[in-house]
Amino acid sequence: MTTVTHRNSDPQTPPRDLKRSVISLVGWALFFMLLAWSWEDADMRPMDLFNDAANMGQFASGFFPPDFTEWKMYVSEIIITFKIAVWGTVLAIVFSIPFGIMSSENIVPWWICQPTRRLMDMFRAINEMVFAMLFVVAVGLGPFAGVLALWVHTTGVLAKLFSEAVESIDPRPIEGIRATGANALHEIIFGVIPQVLPLWISYSLYRFESNVRSATVLGIVGAGGIGMLLWEYIRGFYYAETAAVMILIIVSVSLLDLLSQRLRKLVT
């Protein structure tokens, strides 16, 4: 049997840092206090899940077997949903390019950067569902309201992501271009965009994925797509049809996610 004995020449284990231990304890205490504080107002009733298990079982059994009789209509509505996402995302990308550059600290002076960023914050802070409700009032029920909602919200998100990519570029190639007597737009087109393009494409594809997901619920507020149908079925207690629609949504969204992931791997 061997034991490790301490010799004077051995390097010493550093003493336990008291300050860090205290900070870590306080941190955990604060975290648990936050959980406790939020319990009541979040209406946490975990026991109900067990007490009402029978009810829930009955509710769930209503979903089976899923009813695919109207599958042609479901698929055509899903395709409409996809088209809403396409237009919402493409418009957002087109607008995010200038807005993204205009909110990059290293490209524009602060008096352009800060106002643009605040505007993008506004676009982003409000959920696409809220925008959808507003646009339904403005342009009437239907997919166009959904396109507009996705466009505004996604512009806010993509402009921020685009500008983060721009802010992390290597400034030296831009200096090289500037030194040839090129103007500021040349610097952006030949110096900035080639550097950020792979990231921009990847972000855009990712946003397209999430927009397809968002578009499936836009119909709930009347902004077109499969969501409208889903909402009608849920409200009318047609659970078998609801289940069929949900399965179709899951399948198509997963397929799209896979495809977009492949594409994103291709560009980066």
């Binding site: 190639p173 200096e175 030194a179 040839t180 007597g181 080639p194």
Partner: peptide, 30 residues
């Protein structure tokens, strides 16, 4: 005025993702 002054940098300052030809073509931008 910078057109008349060519600058060569320690780290080359080319745009890495563009072709060599495009990088050299940057010389006509001014």
């Amino acid at each position: 005025h910078r057109r008349e002054i060519g600058v060569v940098f320690q780290q080359f300052n080319l745009v890495g993702r563009l072709t060599v030809l495009t990088n050299v073509l940057m010389g006509v931008l001014g």
